[in-house]
């Protein structure tokens, strides 16, 4: 899942670098201050361990035994695992940055595109993996299930982000890219989920003091919601480009059965999830407006329930 050099133009690569540098700076500050002790040396040593454990290749057919996956292997990334153990997504950002930098010396991921690789595996993987785990735990879902889902998404979503980056770069078509990455990263995500649960279980038995479980409980719901909204906004921007122009099953049936009677008698505000005359931007805006409306309705309902 490491993007090599030349597959993303320099200007786009620079944008990903800027985003990553902002996050890396914050991650270093986190290691210095939020962990109370100076954990920088410890993280350096741990990054070496994570680099080495990423060399353990696991057959994809071990997870999903289908012929398509014969000969395909995957290795644990560990972004969600690191974030969950240290109770912070910044741990994942820091560790992944270092691992990716050394991997680039092996030609595993490029130099100009390292920002994009850090964004995918460290930032998206770490944040989505961790806050999915926290969010589901707050909903009283079993810890192992929450952890599995978090680790699964920490593999799947970076894969989809990579497909978008290659599409923006003009290197690979979007729909096929998303389909391929979702398939392979989805399978790898299942493996990552299982391994994360096993490793976390083993660590909590052997060294429970390493895991900051108390922080998991203290983590504010607002952060979970903020990351959730960021993910939904990402999907809102992506959806119009992924959606098919063909009618759905009901529309197709209706057009065949009611040939001349089709057509709505109501004037719709955002017909076909779009703002007329605005093209793709209108479709993105319509979905974002819809999401904001749902959010306000949800907040309203939850307040009414609370009062009741």
């Amino acid at each position: 899942m490491h993007i090599p050099d030349t597959f993303i133009p320099l200007t786009q690569a620079a944008i990903y670098w800027i985003i990553s540098i902002i996050f890396i700076t914050r991650a270093v500050k986190w290691a210095r201050k939020d962990m109370k002790e100076n954990m920088i040396p410890l993280f350096g040593v741990l990054a070496a361990g994570i680099f080495v454990l990423q060399t353990i290749n696991i057959a994809a057919s071990l997870i999903v035994p289908i012929p398509m996956l014969t000969g395909v292997s995957w290795h644990i990334v560990g972004a969600a695992l690191a974030a969950i153990i240290f109770a912070s997504p910044w741990a994942a950002v820091l560790l992944m940055t270092m691992v990716l930098a050394i991997q680039s010396l092996f030609g595993d991921g490029g130099i100009t595109v390292m920002g994009a690789n850090i964004l995918n595996m460290g930032i998206i993987g770490g944040f989505m993996g961790y806050y999915t785990f926290i969010g589901l735990s707050k909903l009283s879902i079993k810890r192992s299930s929450a952890m599995f889902t978090g680790a699964f998404l920490s593999m799947l979503l970076p894969g989809i982000a990579l497909a978008f980056e290659l599409w923006l770069a003009g290197t690979f078509p979007l729909k096929q890219g998303v389909l391929l990455m979702a398939t392979f990263q989805g399978v790898a995500g299942i493996g990552e989920g299982f391994i994360t649960v096993i490793v976390f279980g083993a660590i909590i038995k052997a060294r429970p003091d390493i895991v900051n479980e108390e922080y998991h409980k203290k983590e504010s719901a607002a952060k979970v919601v903020a990351v959730g909204i960021a993910a939904l906004l990402g999907l809102a921007v992506a959806a119009p480009f992924l959606a098919s122009n063909n009618p759905d099953g009901l529309e197709q049936t209706a057009s065949l059965v009611l040939k001349n009677e089709i057509g709505s008698r109501i004037t719709l505000l955002f017909s076909d999830y779009a703002i007329p005359g605005m093209g793709r931007a209108g479709e993105v805006a319509a979905i974002i407006i819809g999401l904001v409306a749902i959010l306000f309705i949800w907040i309203g309902i939850s307040r009414i329930i609370k009062k009741a």
């Binding site: 410890l42 454990l53 696991i58 490793v199 660590i203």
Partner: peptide
């Protein structure tokens, strides 16, 4: 069984993770 193999891989990774963490502590 696949589950057993996955568990063994998981334990190997756990071992390496804990050892590297403990080495980090000692170094610190």
């Amino acid at each position: 069984p696949r589950k057993w193999t996955l568990e063994q891989i998981g334990y190997t990774i756990s071992l390496l993770f804990i050892r590297s963490y403990e080495q980090g502590e000692r170094t610190y």
